[in-house]
Write a protein that binds this DNA or RNA. Structure first.
Length: 504
RNA sequence: GGCCUCGUAGCUCAAUCGGCAGAGCAGUUGACUCUUAAUCAAUUGGUUGUGGGUUCGAGUCCCACCGGGGUCACCA
């Protein structure tokens, strides 16, 4: 329930006074002819000789009342524009709205008049008519701007409280222009990604978000229920198994950009719902996938940032040069001195890690998870420049094809940039009997952790039995790519409405 | 979920050893017909996240809870 504070009570009173004057507070019609920046360009293009008449609209961001004259800045998405309001041009009645401060900073108004330049040199509108478009009842945080001679803008006053900014993103966006720019960049990144994949000849598809069985990743799902069908359903944790079914169906290459849901912890790089891109392409292996991913990421970066060199958390990262490829085994050996192939059972590896780092695992930890631990602890944070880490332990990769003549590894890579995992790829397992055995193996390994196992998907196995061509596949955390290219701290800074606990 | 840390006016922040809750911005009133962080004068605004406790006295110390941030666990 809204409890108006002092400022809000003032504004409610002003709203009453405006209504008493016959002013409509929330009219439906607007007569805008120019955005603020179009108006400025039209004036500058015309030269001082011509009269340029405009009607502009926007939010009042500054009022400077000087007796019988007033200056206002209004702002629309394109930028700010000054209104030079004079009692002579506006007339007593309209100027009264300004002089009695019935129009507040934060209100939306429209102004009609001719373009001119003030004595101080600022291109402005000199209105003969103004009209309220929407009354603001609650004040936005106050930010004042000083435009320096060199054009840089210094801001005084801040709106920095993270909790309020995330909960009230509308206020954050209205006040903090750089926040708007992050989300424009996010959209550009996704557009660039989509058009790249289209040009590669891949078909964009949509697969179920509500799934009778979840799979394709190791994560706990959100569960829901269809009342009429009396059916439990899961929100998808990945698109993988549906997209590969489509390759069975005869598409050579498909991709999807959409939302995944994982019922896990929240952190600077984890949100319960997040945006994923996955593609699958027949007749290539994971080396072919890596080539596509490298070209794609370079193209996206060039289009979104105008360069393939980025700065992230103080690191200068060069995405333009050819990317490093290293096996997981070599990477771990370099970083820790441990060649895990010297310890081919869970017990021996556990002991080796304990001796070297005195780290203790759960008693039933698998060999692959321990290898993964070594990697994420000792290698991952150091992978600042773009790096493909190739060939992962088999027991943590149930959908990847074995490395020929190697019982321990599968053809899988992950992409690391800025010490952060951005993507995951396989030469996809297409042998239905091997796949069935892997499901069984996963069920054995993870039996104890009730809901963490990858459930056997019989329909997926049926699809594979019809014949699945050799293919490579890839998945990328889109939010993380945006974090990287926008150089922001947290996934919450690239989600318009990040997940928060309930207020109050 | 464990641990650490923060929560004071609409926003950004003060408040000494536990001793009268304050400032700037904005808001209100007044002055000003080319200002631009406008200026000048006066002025309103607080259940200090919530609930307990210790104390003559709590924004400050203790406990619990709520919310944020960080970190570990879980997890890409």
């Amino acid at each position: 329930m809204w409890q108006p504070n002092n400022v809000e009570r003032e504004r409610l009173e002003k709203a009453d006074r405006l209504r008493a004057l016959g002013v409509e507070l929330y009219p439906a019609r607007v007569e805008r002819t120019h955005t603020t920046q179009e108006a400025i360009r039209a004036y500058e293009a015309a030269g001082d000789a011509e009269t340029v008449s405009v009607t502009v609209a926007g939010r009042i961001r500054r009022v400077n009342l000087k007796g019988k004259v007033a200056f206002m800045h209004i702002e629309d998405e394109s930028g700010r524009l000054q209104l030079f309001l004079r009692i002579n041009e506006l007339g007593e009645d309209q100027f009264q709205l300004v002089r009695e401060k019935l129009l507040d900073v934060d209100d939306f108004i429209q102004a009609s008049g001719t373009m001119m330049r003030t004595q101080a040199g600022e291109v402005s509108v000199q209105p003969t008519h103004i009209r309220l478009l929407a009354k603001s009842l609650s004040p936005l945080p106050v930010i004042k701007q000083q435009v320096k001679d060199d054009g840089t803008v210094v801001e005084y006053g801040e709106f920095t409280d993270k909790e309020t900014r995330y909960r009230q993103r509308y206020a954050d966006l209205a006040v903090n222009r750089d926040v708007r720019e992050v989300f424009v960049k996010r959209t550009r990144i996704i557009q660039a990604m989509r058009s790249f994949l289209d040009r590669e000849g891949m078909l964009e598809v949509e697969t179920p978000i509500l799934q009778p069985l979840y799979g394709g990743a190791a994560a706990r799902p959100f569960t829901t229920h269809h009342n009429e069908l009396k059916q439990d359903l899961y929100l998808r944790i990945s698109f993988e198994l549906y997209l590969k079914r489509l390759i069975v169906g005869g598409f050579d290459a498909v991709y999807e950009i959409g939302r995944d849901f994982r019922n896990e912890g929240v952190s600077f790089k984890h949100n319960p719902e997040f945006t994923m891109m996955e593609f699958y392409k027949a007749y290539i292996d994971y080396n072919g996938v890596a080539d596509i991913v490298e070209r794609m990421t370079k193209t996206i970066c060039q289009q979104a940032n105008g360069s393939t060199t980025i700065v992230y958390r103080g690191h200068t990262i060069d995405l333009g040069s050819p990317w490093a490829r290293i096996t997981m085994r070599a990477a771990i050996q370099q970083a820790t001195g441990i060649d895990y192939m010297d310890y081919q059972t869970a017990d021996t590896l556990r002991q080796a890690i304990h001796e070297r780092f005195s780290h203790t695992f759960k008693p039933d930890e698998t060999w692959g998870k321990m290898v993964e631990h070594l990697f994420s602890e000792h290698v991952e944070p150091k992978l600042i420049q773009p790096t493909f880490v190739m060939d992962y332990p088999r027991d943590i990769s149930p959908f990847a094809k074995r490395v020929q003549g190697d019982d321990f590894h599968v053809e899988r890579f992950e992409l690391y940039i800025g010490g952060m995992e951005l993507g995951n790829a396989f030469t996809e397992l297409n042998d239905p009997l091997d796949q069935a055995a892997r499901f069984e193996e996963m069920a054995q390994l993870y039996r104890k952790e009730d809901d963490d196992a990858t459930p056997t998907d019989e329909d997926y196995l049926r699809a594979m039995r019809y014949g699945m061509p050799p293919m490579g596949g890839f998945g990328m955390g889109v939010d993380r790519l945006v974090i990287l290219l926008a150089n922001v701290e947290s996934i919450r800074d690239v989600l318009l409405f990040p997940h928060m606990r309930p207020e109050a």
